[in-house]
Structures are given as structure tokens and as C-alpha cells.
Nucleic acid binder design. Structure first.
Lengths: 350, 350
DNA sequence: TGGCCAATTTAAAACGTTATAAATTCAGCA
DNA sequence: TGCTGAATTTATAACGTTTTAAATTGGCCA
């Protein structure tokens, strides 16, 4: 059967070390150790003597070894990848970029890489989540635009796949999240309008689907009820609406009776659109009306400093999400450590 | 249809099919073919009979098979990954998100995934490029903020690693790029200002490092020279400057002799900052001065419609870059097909 | 019927890593 | 000296895929 003399079989000690990238075997050949030992040594396994570990480490650095991720992944089943669901929206200035920079910062120095799954592929991005988990494309998942009964959260919780949401749900099963305290933001911002003497604030809230819209509304309502003043939640538009629509709606509203005298805007684009709409009606900011807005850039401060703003640092948020996810992947189960509610920084002069 | 699920013990045909994800072997066991054959069949190899191919394909779909990327990558050396260098800048509205959405769109339906390498740490992101190529993290690379003698381009060209830049270089070795024709944009925009009767346009250009800054400047200069009018290139600021700095600089300039009477702005944030600065001096847009700007969102149209704008579609740009990169990876060497210069859409009423 | 070539299918090896189990060394002690 | 057990190191076998080379089938013709 088997011919003893096989063709092209190299005589010496296995195949010649490939000219390409160094592998564990390269190190093994240099040090005279077995591949297994080298692998263990680099993993700092206690069963390998300190001497050997040191020598292996040195050689590895010297020849510029870095492990093949594909092989590791194949063997261990772990991908060393974090996936983030990207929404192609840009109504919140710099949202995607900031979040991703932040996550990447948290991942820096770890073996994790960041992959982007844009979710326009799938109308409901449950499909994207399914795709990622089924094909084990990542070890963890990050996404935003969280809904109170978010189907993605239910799915991932059920199968025990690590994830962190930007925003909370109202589900009973706890899960990792990082959220901005939009209730407090909205409450304080609305109080500020009232403190300035305004008697009928209007809220331009987030799309009703998302949990944070409810928080904004709750904070707003709490403030107006406390003050016992009139209020309005502007219908027909939300923070996702194109700036032109917001402008039109604001202008239109002023043609009707009992218009609001101030606005609580969830984002800077919304604030700018509102200002323009009011300006169309001949009204000046700080004079006939006021605006308080959340900003995620520093644009308003430079362009419309009359708008009172609270800054939300999305890069820091991303970094938090990355950190939390790593903890979760690392096996942390104490939800106390996996749930972060970031406090708005209320300006000192309010 | 599905037979009753197999009992916990398997017969004598090798190890029990793992309960987990289906692999080639699962299909092999079901069809009675060899793993090799299944692999070939799924690759639509002509040496496999059409009958077999069809049967294998059907079974694959039925059991929801999808190939293990780690194994493919390990074996073939191809990663099926495209990397994009992300700049944490957001002076250009929605830049990162739009570009990435576009790339992802181009990658849709292919086996490629998109990974993000943020380059905030490495001042020159040559290091990031090195990291990606040395560790074969991707099959192709996309980046922007291209410089005339871009070291990344030189490096990648030298080692023959597929890449596409957003923007051109002035290197003699040709390479794949997608660029917006900033010369034409700038030329036409400046002509527009002059056609409106302005006699001293000012340019706020990109950071001098980047190639496109030169193109903007060249277009601007061509127009003012043709018209024989005065001009100014605003010093001390550029499109990367914070909005506040631009505002301050514009205001300051108006305190000095011979101020410009119009502006050519490369982005909408710059335009807004300029308007604010002029407003500080009591000047009104469309009255004492005019602005033409490039916009990458639809913000200006809603907020400051008096600004004349040319729209640059960054999502489409990303999609082009993705497509071009796939061609390049596919072996296309005809640079004619790998170099795209996108024409500005000049408004009809200019 | 046998032979030969083409058409299919297959077995075995390999990619680089880690997990499992086994082997080797070596000191301590009776 | 010989035994024991701890401390190290090692061989072997995977992970799921593709590649290389070989084997099997079948058709056709002499």
C-alpha cells in the first residue's frame, strides 16, 4: 500500500520554515522547544517554567511573531471580534463616528477588533443580529436605538449572547446597557426654561418607538406639572425628522392659536431647525422665546450661543459600552457592573 | 422532510455530527458524498456533475449551512475582510457614517465584511496600515485624507496590497482612488460668487496637508484670475478648525482693512460659522455678502437656504470606493477602471 | 471483451492554533 | 538504590476548510 519513499518529502526536520510570517513553529524551531510548549509559554501558563516563558517571549518579540487570528478562532471558537450595528442616520451629529471611536478606544490594547454591520441590509435589524449570532461572527454585540420591548434584546438574552445596548429596555430580564439619563436631562432642561419665565414649553421628542423618547417625555412632564404651567408635545415631528420638516412644523404651529413660548430640543439639528422656523415668523431667540437643547458636538456653542445646551459625550459613551461589553464577555454576571446610567452635566449657572 | 432526530448515540459512521452548526461534513453525511466533493460542489466546480451540485446546494440551504470563515481564512489566506481607516473628525457632517454605509452597500451580497480601524493614536496612520498588512487583517484597505505624497499610498503600492483612497496623490505610481472633483467645484462656486457681483471672494480651504486643499485652491484661483478680481485665502483657519475658531477669525478679519465680500466654504459647518461671524459684525447673508458652500448633508438647505450649495454624496462615494476595491482585489489592473473622479452637480440655475 | 480516456469522485494533507493526554525529568525520601 | 509525585515538556489530535494527487466510474472504440 504505502510506498516508503514518498515524493518530495523533505528529509531534515519537517517542511522548511516558510519564508512568510513567523508562526509558533518558527519559534519552536529557534528555541528547540515543542510547538505546544511555545503556545503555552506565550499564554503564560503556570505549568511552563519561568525561564522558558521568558525565552519564548523574547524570541517572539525578536522575530515579530503575532498569532494567526484565523487559526485561533478556528480552534477556540472565539472570534476576538466585537460587532456594532450601524444606523445610517445622522440627525444626531457625529453619532456613528463618535460611538465607534469610543468603542475602539475601549478595545485598544485588547485582542478585539471592531466590525461594522450596517443595518439597512435588513429592514428590521433582528435579521442582522441573527446573522451575527448564527454564523458566530463576533463574540459580542453593541447597538443603539433601543426599544422598550426590543426584539434584539429578547433574542440575545434568550441565547445568552453577550451584548450591550445604548439605551434601556422595559424588559424584566436585566441586561447590560449604557444610557444617558434623559429623564434628568429633560427635567432639568425644562425647569430651566420655566426658570427663565417661560410659561408654555414645547417638547420635540425622539421617535415614539425608542425608550429614550419616553424618558424625555417623562422628565418634561414632571417639570411642567411641578410648575403647573401649560405645555405641548409637538406632534408630527421628532428628532429623526429632516431639519426642513421640523422648521416647517414649527412655523406652521405659530400660525395656530396658543403657540408655545419655548422649546426643549433633543439635538442640535432640531434646535437649528426650530430657530429657523421661528425666525421665519419674525421671532428672535432669547427674546420672544427660548430653547434648551442637548448637543453632541460643539456646534451650537459656536453658531447659536443663545441656545442653552447640555453636552452629551458620545465618544465616552462608546468607550463605556466597549468596556462593559468586555466585562460581560469576560464572564461578569453582576448586572450592577454592567449597567451604566450617565448623568447629564448641568451647567453651573443654571 | 425531517426524519426523527437521531438518538444520542451514532452508528458507526464516524464521530456523531456535532449538534452545533452544520459543516461540510454534515452535508457529506446527509448526501453520502465526500467532504471534498461537497466543498467543490458548493464552489460550483465544473468537474462536479450538475446533478450533484444541485443536490448539495439544496441540502446546504435546507440545513442552513454557511461556511466557517475562520477555516476558510486559515486555509486560503484570504480574510474576506475590508478595512477602513476611520478618522474621528466630524467637521464634515456625517463623513464617517456615510462613507461606511456606502462601502457596506457595495459589499452587500459579497462575502466581505467591513472592519473599522480608528487611527486616533498614531499621528501618522502609517502604523495602522502596517499593522493591517503585516498581520494580514484584511484583503483590502480604504482610507481618506489623502496627501500629495501620502506615505500610506507609497507603502501599500510597494508591497502590492489592494487599497483605494478617497482623494488623489501626486505620486507617479498610479493607484486606485475615488475623488470628488474639487477643482471644478471650487472653480464653479467661485464663478458663481463673481457672477453675483462680488469682487473679493475669500476661500476657506482644507488643511494644507491634504491634496484636495490644493484642488480647492486651484479652482478658486483660476476663477478669480479669469475675472481679474481681488481675492483672499483666509489664513489661520481651515475646514478642520472648530466652528468657534472660524467664527472668530471671520469676525476679526472684518475689523481689518479690505475685507472680502464673499466666501467659498468647503463644508456646511464652515459656512454656518462664517455666517455667525459676519452676523457678529452686523452683516447679513445675501445682502452685504454671499456664501457658496459644499454640503454633505441637507442641513443648509433647511437652515440657511440663502447659502448657495453644491451637494456631495458621500454615501455614493463610499459605495464607489467599495466597488473599486473589489475590482482591484479581483485582479483588475487597468487603472482606468480603478480611478473615479466624481463630477460636482452644478445647480441648473447657476 | 479489453483498453483507454474523460468524467466524476475521493482520500489525505495542510493551514496555525489549542486541548487532551501522555511522557519525561528530577528532587525527596525510605 | 529505587520509588513516588510534582514539575516540566511533549506528541497527537482536533477545529472546518481547500488543495493536491489519486482513485473510481463509465463510455466508446477496436
Amino acid at each position: 500500500m504505502a510506498d516508503p519513499s514518498k515524493p518530495a518529502r523533505s528529509e531534515d526536520n519537517g517542511p522548511p520554515a516558510k519564508r512568510g510570517k513567523p508562526t509558533l513553529r518558527t519559534i519552536a524551531e529557534i528555541t528547540g522547544l515543542a510547538v505546544t510548549t511555545v503556545s503555552r509559554a506565550l499564554a503564560e501558563a503556570p505549568q511552563i517554567s519561568a525561564d522558558t516563558r521568558k525565552r519564548v517571549r523574547e524570541v517572539a518579540i525578536e522575530i515579530g511573531y503575532s498569532p494567526d487570528r484565523a487559526a485561533q478562532r478556528l480552534k477556540t471558537g472565539r472570534t476576538n471580534v466585537i460587532a456594532v450595528l450601524l444606523d445610517p442616520h445622522e440627525e444626531i451629529l457625529g453619532y456613528g463616528t463618535s460611538i465607534m471611536s469610543g468603542i475602539a478606544k475601549a478595545l485598544q490594547g485588547t485582542s478585539y477588533h471592531l466590525i461594522v454591520m450596517p443595518n439597512f441590509l435588513n429592514s428590521t435589524n433582528v435579521e442582522a443580529v441573527n446573522y451575527i449570532t448564527r454564523n458566530s461572527m463576533a463574540d459580542g454585540l453593541i447597538f443603539s436605538r433601543t426599544e422598550p420591548l426590543d426584539p434584539r434584546v429578547m433574542l440575545l438574552s434568550e441565547i445568552g449572547f453577550p451584548f450591550v445596548t445604548h439605551g434601556r429596555t422595559e424588559l424584566s430580564t436585566p441586561h447590560a446597557y449604557v444610557d444617558y439619563d434623559n429623564f434628568t436631562f429633560s427635567y432639568q432642561a425644562t425647569r430651566r426654561l420655566i426658570a427663565k419665565g417661560r410659561r408654555k414649553p414645547a417638547l420635540i421628542s425622539g421617535p415614539a418607538d425608542f425608550t429614550f423618547a419616553g424618558h424625555l417625555q417623562h422628565g418634561f412632564m414632571t417639570a411642567v406639572r411641578e410648575a403647573g404651567c401649560a405645555y405641548e408635545i409637538l406632534s408630527g415631528i421628532d428628532l429623526d425628522s429632516p431639519a426642513g420638516d421640523i422648521r416647517d412644523r414649527v412655523r406652521q404651529r405659530y400660525g395656530e392659536p396658543d403657540p408655545p413660548d419655548s422649546f426643549m430640543c433633543g439635538g442640535e439639528v432640531c434646535a437649528l431647525a426650530t430657530i429657523t422656523g421661528m425666525s421665519d415668523c419674525g421671532l428672535t431667540l432669547g427674546n420672544e422665546y427660548d430653547i434648551v437643547a442637548k448637543q453632541t458636538s460643539h456646534l451650537l456653542g459656536a453658531i447659536q450661543p443663545q441656545v442653552e445646551t447640555i453636552y452629551e459625550d458620545l465618544t465616552a459613551t462608546g468607550e463605556d459600552m466597549g468596556r462593559v461589553l468586555l466585562q460581560r464577555i469576560g464572564g461578569e454576571t453582576d448586572v450592577g457592573k454592567l449597567q451604566l446610567l450617565l448623568s447629564p452635566q448641568i451647567p453651573a449657572n443654571w
